[in-house]
Nucleic acid binder design. Structure first.
Length: 437
RNA sequence: GCGGGUGUAGCUCACUUGGUUAGAGCACAGGAUUGUGGAUCCUGGGGCAGCGGGUUCAAUUCCCGUCACCCGCCCCA
């Protein structure tokens, strides 16, 4: 009789404090990165949101666009069933990205009408059913922000500055934000027609992939990886040359603002996002110490029509999502290691089981004072505990038991200098706290 | 979703041209050690050789399938 082992699902890994060789899966790195992000965006007035992992499939169809690859072939479908059996159709999905759910919540709770200055951030898992690879996982975690009810270009500038500033703050170098404007519902369709007319002349010469996108999503033809396509499309018309006055002004202000703030960016007229909902500003942060497609560690843009598309009032919005995994890979590629968690500074030891709980009580007292303290649950002898103290590299060991305990005292041992002193048991916590400063 | 590579103990790796009971180092646990240090020595737990099938007297070894991971493509964060 053997019990079959159950493995984690393909493309979904465990993040653990021990036992993971890869930097990417070491939980200390995750805790640090998430805290850095939360601190950073909270300083900008963003507040934490949490929306469900599962949503109506229709939500993502409506927001990402039926023609997008996300909806077309990467959606993680979930069977609709209240009983857990196989009843129900696949009309639910695990969220592939963060914006749709937040927008849904904004509409559902009427937030766009009732509140000003809607600034949200999330740290949440996203799902796409793609073949896993380095930097591409079926479950990946995104840190992201969403800002609503603000159409001023200063919002675009600040959002991009937040993304760029975050990477800077965690020590990342050699990254740059690619910025583009993808127009609005007024000028983009006009550009689309111009572009299709241009592309049609190469209809027979272009790659099969490009041909398939020609009418469905012609802008995606321009970022074809095919060399021949790149040659053919070299003189393709740019969106930037076809922006209407409003979009052009907006983009000009965004660029000027980014320059003023010293955000490293380059204008990339070929930048096209995989999601259909973006308007005006679109951007991607790329790290040059990563390879190929996973260079993009964070991306976002403006989505002024999204809330309305979900049945809410016309509400401008802008945001970004950044991959925790790719950001960690980027840090690793630059040999940047987050600071380790605070190590224990004190070990409370005991010489016999009779004083074990007196020792544990002191340990708790020290911890309550903010001093990281270790305690061994089943130590048999003092030598073993001191060995452990050495392994942990603590600064002090407090020893319970023996003659000192009989006098109502405990031994306080400076583990660095090996000096020992006996102190009244009831003052031990205070004395240790004083010694540690 | 397509193509390629790799799977032996928790980790790093051996051996076996197909042949006794698959080994070592590290790690882990116990002891030497009932009041004082990172050492040393001893002992121990651990493996259906990823999983399933085939060929064979005999498979961890050869073949097929499958699963997982890694790499490339598509695409994305």
């Amino acid at each position: 009789m053997t019990t079959p082992k159950i493995q984690s699902i393909r493309g979904m890994g465990d993040v653990l404090p021990v036992g993971q060789k890869q930097f990417l899966y070491q939980s200390g790195n995750w805790v640090w990165l998430k805290r850095q992000f939360a601190d950073w965006v909270e300083a900008h007035g963003y507040r934490y949101v949490e929306t469900p992992v599962v949503e109506e499939l229709e939500l993502f169809k409506r927001t990402s666009g039926e023609t997008s690859d996300i909806v077309g072939k990467e959606m993680y479908l979930v069977r609709r069933s209240s009983t857990g059996d196989e009843a129900g159709d696949f009309s639910l999905a695990l969220r592939p990205e963060g914006s749709a759910g937040v927008c849904r919540a904004v509409v559902e709770h009427g937030l766009a009408r009732s509140h000003a200055g809607l600034k949200f951030y999330y740290i949440a898992p996203m799902f796409r059913s793609e073949r896993p690879q380095r930097g591409r996982y079926r479950q990946h975690t995104q840190i992201g922000i969403e800002l609503f009810k603000e159409k001023d270009a200063a919002a675009d500038v600040e959002v991009i500055a937040i993304l760029s500033g975050f990477y800077q703050r965690i020590g990342l170098k050699d990254f740059v934000v690619h910025v583009n404007s993808v127009g609005d519902p007024e000028c983009r369709p006009r550009y689309r027609e111009v572009l299709i007319r241009f592309l049609e002349q190469f209809k027979d010469a272009m790659s099969e992939d490009a041909r398939a996108r020609l009418y469905a999503n012609p802008m995606r033809c321009l970022d074809s990886k095919d060399e021949n396509d790149q040659r053919l499309f070299a003189d393709a018309p740019n969106m930037l040359d076809h922006l209407n006055a409003e979009c052009a002004d907006h983009f000009a202000e965004v660029k000027a603002g980014l320059e003023k703030l010293g955000v490293p960016f380059i204008v990339d007229p070929r930048l096209v996002r995989g999601l259909d909902y973006y308007t005006k500003t679109a951007f991607e942060a790329k790290c040059n110490t990563l390879d190929g497609a996973i260079k993009t560690i964070g991306a976002g843009g403006r989505y002024d029509g999204l809330v309305e598309q979900l049945g809410g009032p016309a509400t401008p919005g802008i945001g970004f999502g950044s991959s925790v995994e790719r950001t960690l890979l980027a840090l690793e590629s630059q040999q940047i290691a987050p600071p380790p968690p605070a190590p224990p500074r004190v070990l409370v030891a005991y010489m016999d089981a009779g004083v074990k709980y007196d020792a544990l009580k002191l340990a708790e007292d020290l911890r309550a004072r903010g001093i990281p303290t270790e305690f061994l649950y089943h130590a048999k002898n003092l030598g073993r505990q001191l060995k452990e103290a050495g392994d942990l590299d603590v600064e002090y060991v407090v020893i319970y038991g023996g003659q000192e305990w009989d006098r109502g005292e405990v031994m306080l041992k400076n583990f660095r200098t090996r000096e020992q002193e006996s102190v009244r048991a009831e003052t031990a916590a205070e004395v240790v706290a004083g010694r540690l400063g």
